[in-house]
Each structure stands twice: as structure tokens, then as C-alpha cells.
Simulated scan of single mutants.
Amino acid sequence: MSDQTFTQYLLDVQDAARGPQRPPGHDYAHILSAVAVSMKLTASLVSRGPLALSGASRSAGEPGTLQRGLRRLATRTLLERVAGIGRLAAVSIAGDPSIHQISAGLDARYLLLAEALHGSGGLYENQTVGLAFSILERLGGGPCGEADFMQPETRQVCAGIGLYGPSTMLVLTTGHGVDGFTLDRDVGNFVLTHPQMTIPTSSGSFAINPSEARHWPAPTKRYVDECLRGSDGPRGRDFTMRWNASAVIGAFRVLVNGGLFMAPDTGRRVGLWGMPLMHNAAPLAFLAEQAGGAATTGGERILDLVPLSLTQRIPIFFGAVEEVRRIERYVDEHARGLDEGQSYPLFHHRTLFIEP
């Protein structure tokens, strides 16, 4: 039997949406198709790097120039592909306060949230970048405003990530598990290569930004300390710490290798702390749970949150259930003072490493 293409997958999604348990019109396959097409076009842009920019921008040679230029092109590509979809009411783009109105028709039942080029800061170093998106079912009618997007994250009907690297991948859930597709450039279609992905329950890896170690809260320091003490520490086995400054790459690693991705609350509110709830954390949490994992702020399940604004940012821990529950336990024990007096040897010095 030949591999299933994304087109065939969308037909299955559409058939399921029209089943007896779904109301008429509950169909977002056209939106997913547009996202996939925008990914193909964006993959071509990313592969060209500075060559995708105009002469003046290309010759600037600054990291921010490439980042801003390709991010704008990726966002414009996505908006152009979804324009005119009758079932899509509006789009919210990460970092853009505007609501992009698409359709005001009676069939406009859906809202799309997306970050078209996540981790674009790594483009100057030719690193993998990605996409994060989520689809919500709309509650009202007429022109859309920010209030239409302020829904419990459990109302997501679909979420996914994309990766632009050595291969272009689309990973998504429609609420029935997680499937991964790889772009076959020879035929111009995504092909199912990772069916029903599940997060491995046992893993010796975790991801966190070590440059902010001095600002980590005590439960995070405790977790990292125990992992890095390896087989001689309380965990009794060795761990590997990784960091790519990308939640999308971190999410994919968790999906294929297990472990835990952490972006804790450092207590600092300067710059871009934490993770955008609606455009990043919520779709990643949906993927994690559909793949048998979990996602939390440390104290609350992320899918239980009701956003307060389109720009709201939160701490996030997502990955294997066992590791997520461990960090939640450490947070709870710290709140109750049960970890008072505990020592974290790796943090007695200015770095993560003990001097000999």
C-alpha cells in the first residue's frame, strides 16, 4: 500500500467532519490545506535564505534584516493562502495586534492563530525554523475582534507545528492523535511518515535555556540539578541537556525522543519572557496531550487556561507525563515549604558546572 498523502488525509478529515456526530458545516479541511500550501511556499523561501530578499535588504548583511524579511514574507504567504476561505472568519498573527478579517459569512465558523516563522532569529546561522498554528471554532457572528479569540484552550479543534530544516515537516492533531508528514519535493505533496506519534515515556534528555540559570525558580533548579548530577544523583541515571532557543524544535524533539521542554517563569518581565499562550503554548499543549504527554505552567494545565489577551505569555513545561508531574510536584512542594534547606550543588557557583 502506498504512503498516504496529506490530500488523502484531508479527505478523511472532511468525511469525519460530515459524520452523524458533527453538525453541518463543521469542516476546516480547506484551512489546513491552505496552511500546508503556505508551508510549501515558505520552505522554498527559507531554503533560499538571503536570496529570497530584494537586493537592498539582501546586501544589508545584518542578522535582523534576514529575520524580519523572511518573517514578513512567510506571514504574507500564509495570509494570501487563507484569503477567501469562506469558513474562516479571521486570523491572528503572533506579534501583530491586528485581527485579519477573512470572511463574515454565515459559514465562517473558524479562527486561525499562527506564528508563520517561529525561531526566525536562527535564520542568520542557517538553523531550523518553524511554524505553530491553532484553529478555534467561533462562538459568535459578524466582524471578529480580540474577544472572539478569548476562548478556553480546550476549544481548539486542530493544532500543529511545521519545521523547515533538512526536510520540511508538518505535524498536527485534529483531536485524534498526532500525525507527522514530510514534504516530498519530487511530487509536491506532504506524505504521512510519522503516523500516530506518541511521546516516549522514558528519556534521558531535557531542554532549557542555561543562560537564565541564575533566574530560574527553585523547583526548576532542583529538577535541573538532579538531572545533571546523573547516575550519582537522586535520578540514578545520566541526562542530556539541549537548547535551540525554539519551542517548535523542542516540541518535535519531545514528540520523537520524549523528555521535557522547559520555559520557566524567571520573575523577569523585561523583553520577551515566557511563551505566547495562544500562538505557541496552546497548540504545543494540544499536541503534547494528543501524543500521550502533558503540558503545564507548573501549577495549571495549559489547556484549562482562558486567555486574557492575544499577547499573554506564560511559563510552560511540556513533555512526558512522568517528567511533567515531577516538575509539578516540585512546584507544589516549594509552595508549601517542603523543600526548605535543600541544596543544589550545581548552583553554588556562577555556572551550571561544579569546579574540580
Rank of each mutant, 00 (worst) to 15 (best):
L117Q: 12
Q127V: 03
A116D: 12
L117P: 08
G130F: 04
Q127W: 09
S134N: 06
E125T: 12
F133H: 10
V129T: 15
A116Y: 12
R109F: 02
G119A: 11
F133K: 05
H118A: 15
Y124F: 15
N126C: 08
S134A: 15
L131P: 02
S120C: 07
T128C: 09
L117M: 11
E137R: 09
G119M: 05
A114W: 01
L117N: 10
G119H: 13
V129G: 06
G122D: 13
R138Y: 03
L123S: 02
A132R: 02
N126W: 12
T128D: 10
E137N: 07
V129H: 06
E125W: 07
P143M: 13
L131Q: 10
L136N: 01
A114H: 02
R109W: 02
S120P: 08
G130P: 06
N126I: 12
V129K: 11
E115L: 14
E137G: 03
H118V: 14
L131G: 02
Q127T: 07
L139N: 09
N126Q: 15
L113A: 10
H118T: 15
L131H: 07
G140A: 13
E115P: 04
G121N: 07
P143S: 13
S134F: 05
V129C: 12
L113S: 04
H118F: 04
F133M: 04
E137L: 02
A116K: 11
I135H: 00
R109L: 01
Q127K: 14
H118P: 01
Q127F: 08
N126G: 11
G119E: 13
A132L: 07
G140D: 14
P143K: 14
F133G: 05
L117H: 10
H118G: 04
G141P: 07
G141H: 10
L123E: 03
G119C: 09
I135N: 00
A132N: 08
E137W: 03
L112N: 00
L123R: 03
E125F: 07
L112C: 04
L117D: 12
L123H: 02
Y124R: 15
A116C: 11
A114L: 00
T128L: 03
A116R: 12
G121I: 09
E115R: 07
G142Q: 04
